[in-house]
Amino acid sequence: MNTRLKQGKAPMNAIDRRRFLTISAAAVGVAGAGALLGRNATSQALYRWEGVALGTSASITLAHPEAERIVARARAEIARLEGVFSLYRADSALSRLNAAGKLEQPPFELLECLSLCGTVNAATGGLFDPSVQPVWRLYADSYDLGRVPDTAALAAAQALVGWGGVRMDAARISFAEPGMALTLNGVAQGFIADRVATLLASEGLSDILVDTGEMRALGGHPHGGAWPISLDVEGQVLPNAVPLRNLALASSAPRGTTFDDARTQGHILNPATGTPSAQPWRLVSVTAPQAALADALSSAFCLMSREEIAAALTAFPSARLVYLG
């Protein structure tokens, strides 16, 4: 019996809006590409799947005789990875880790992803920190009830934040303190895009754009040239702002989603202070060879000044800040 209640729109689904902005901008590029693909030398009809990955709309577009089978595999992979990373599914590896404070035999993907988180955490001076989840949870729950988070509770939650408290090896992941929890919402979307891209590449495919909320281009545009990706800066569309070829793009809009109705408390929290970002950025876009890395960096950069970002980027020579403003 594997019946689940339909996922309601959980308060933690706050990431949605930010994702939506990028996707709606990208959709133009993908749709255009689709038209070109259809007209291209290949007579293969275009196949486009649109669905959901980690609570966000996702899509895969490709032209292939066995497109349906390939997409079915990709969807199974997405479903499997949701079973690792999703905070909305109580049976996911991450949820079980958060609930129990430890996880035996962690999935390899969780190890890999946390390993990446450690890297970005070190390079950003701790500003990228998945262990901020207890504070995030407190914000979400409080504003859900229409309250400002209680100062004492905030201090207690803040005390649980700290990447150093996360211990892992191939046999076990565990937390130093009970009550600690992780969120991978700032990186998992990109991670899934990478895994789907790897899967499609193993099928011998190229010239595909995987969009799971963050984008990973496999090859370039089927018609030649790079994938033209548009950016959406709080409603203002910058058409074809980023050319993408064998590259990943991730964007974060700190105030795209807010905890409160007044739209002042942005959803990206500073793990050092436990408060929403004090930086003025409306959109931060980063390219990197891997979508997971771009995703993590774009999340962290929301909390950093231009100079700090430049400094952090020296650790990642292949990553590039493509929009900040």
């Binding site: 390993s115 890297t119 990197a288 060879p289 891997q290 997971a292 020579p317 292949s318």
Partner: peptide
């Protein structure tokens, strides 16, 4: 393996 561990998303 050495090349893969030197990739940018790996810990420095």
């Amino acid at each position: 393996v050495n090349a893969a561990f030197a990739a940018p998303d790996q810990p420095p």
